[in-house]
Computed example of a mutant assay.
Amino acid sequence: MFSTFQSKVFQSNNVSVCFNHENKAVTQRQFVSDVNRLLAKYSPGTAPTSVVLYSTNTYKFAVSLMALTLRGCTVILPPNGQPETLKALLQQTPCFLGDSELVEPLGIDFINIENLPEQPGFFPLAQLVWPKEGNLVFYTSGSTGKAKPIVKSWQTINKELSILSSSYALKCMPMFIASVSHQHIYGLLFRLLWPLSTGHVVDTDLLHYPEHIAAKLKGAKQVVLISSPAQLKRLRADNVLIEQKSHLQWIFSSGGPLANEDAVSLFSQLNKPITQVFGSTETGGIAYRQVTSLENVSSWQPFSGIKMSVGTNDRLLLNSPLVNHKDYPLDDRGLVLKSGQFKLLGRLDRIIKLEE
């Protein structure tokens, strides 16, 4: 599937728009050119084995991610830009790319790849090949509450992108807007890689307030909104999107549970169901549902190729093409129905998520 659109999406002579960055259209030609500029900083023989990548600028992040991956680097993605987080990760590798102003005050030696001179004899890419090899390293809190590294291969990332593309139909070339960060697996997949890999437009602004979302809807015919439960709960209380609700094609929520009351209320206000996605950094996406009625709350529908079962103490067991282990145990209790759908009955651990 991915080989089908690689040549279509990333031709350097293609003038199609792939980003809306700072309210300006960025063409595929410009994106390929910017990736080439960064690739010219190091040849394959001099590229570092791993790099810490942190940038709040989604376009800069996308250029950096593609260039690092195509040079064979393992990309380490900090969950935030806090000094303690960056300092700990830069003890693993001295190489950094992104918002260097966050790293400079830390008083540690690091290599800012962006400042390296161009390597002689560099030949620019005529088109950008979609990554197939290499790893991304995410950091997430597990059942202990302590951040731990989760390594995801590009083969696994691409499998999940294929699942997303086949699960949700996109019509009329929608623009993807988001109120979640690309530094986490949900934001990376849904707001950046999915639209980028399928030739849709990525809006690079991080939308913190409903008014900012409303402004985006006014300027776009069709929009896919990538959000979180906490942000949607606040939207429900004062929904400024109602006038532009016809522009919303999909609304996604993940990162934590969305209250049924919030989901139903938003459906009533916007005439569009909230598509909730259940999963984790470790497992990838597992299932989805749309709750539109409190009288008949929808069960979770596993994505294609995913099967659930129940083990001891009602623990849910996962079999997924995104996970190497058979009967992978989740930290959730559940009930699996004859249809293959399932209901969640609560957590087995004592971890809760505040604001995702």
Rank of each mutant, 00 (worst) to 15 (best):
F2K: 09
F2M: 02
T4P: 09
Q6P: 06
S7E: 07
S7C: 03
F10Q: 13
F10Y: 12
S16D: 15
C18H: 13
H21A: 15
H21F: 12
E22Y: 15
N23I: 05
N23E: 14
V26Y: 01
N36T: 14
N36V: 07
N36G: 11
L38T: 11
A40M: 07
K41G: 01
A47T: 07
T49K: 15
S55K: 07
S64Q: 12
T69Q: 10
L70H: 12
C73D: 11
V75M: 11
N80M: 04
N80I: 09
N80D: 08
E84S: 15
L86H: 03
L90C: 12
Q92M: 14
P94M: 02
C95I: 10
F96D: 04
S100P: 03
P105G: 13
L106M: 04
I108L: 14
F110R: 01
F110W: 09
I113Y: 05
I113F: 06
N115I: 13
Q119H: 13
F122V: 02
W130N: 01
P131S: 08
K132S: 10
N135C: 03
V137Y: 08
F138T: 04
F138H: 09
S141R: 13
S143R: 05
A147M: 00
K148G: 01
K152W: 00
K152E: 00
W154V: 12
Q155N: 05
N158M: 04
N158F: 07
N158E: 01
K159D: 07
I163F: 05
L164R: 06
S165K: 09
S166N: 09
Y168D: 03
M175E: 03
S179C: 13
H182V: 06
I185F: 02
L188K: 06
L193P: 06
L193K: 10
P195R: 00
G199E: 03
V202Q: 04
V202F: 11
D203K: 01
T204D: 02
L207M: 08
I213S: 14
K218M: 15
G219R: 15
I226K: 11
S228G: 03
R234G: 06
D238E: 09
D238F: 03
S246R: 12
S254I: 10
D262H: 07
A263I: 05
S265R: 11
K272A: 08
K272N: 07
T275E: 02
Q276V: 02
S280D: 05
G284D: 01
G285K: 13
I286K: 01
A287L: 08
E295G: 00
E295W: 00
V297E: 08
V297K: 01
S298T: 12
F303C: 14
S304D: 04
K307V: 05
S309P: 11
T312C: 03
D314E: 15
L316F: 12
L316N: 01
P321T: 04
P329W: 06
L330H: 10
D331S: 14
G334L: 00
L335N: 11
L345W: 02
L354A: 15
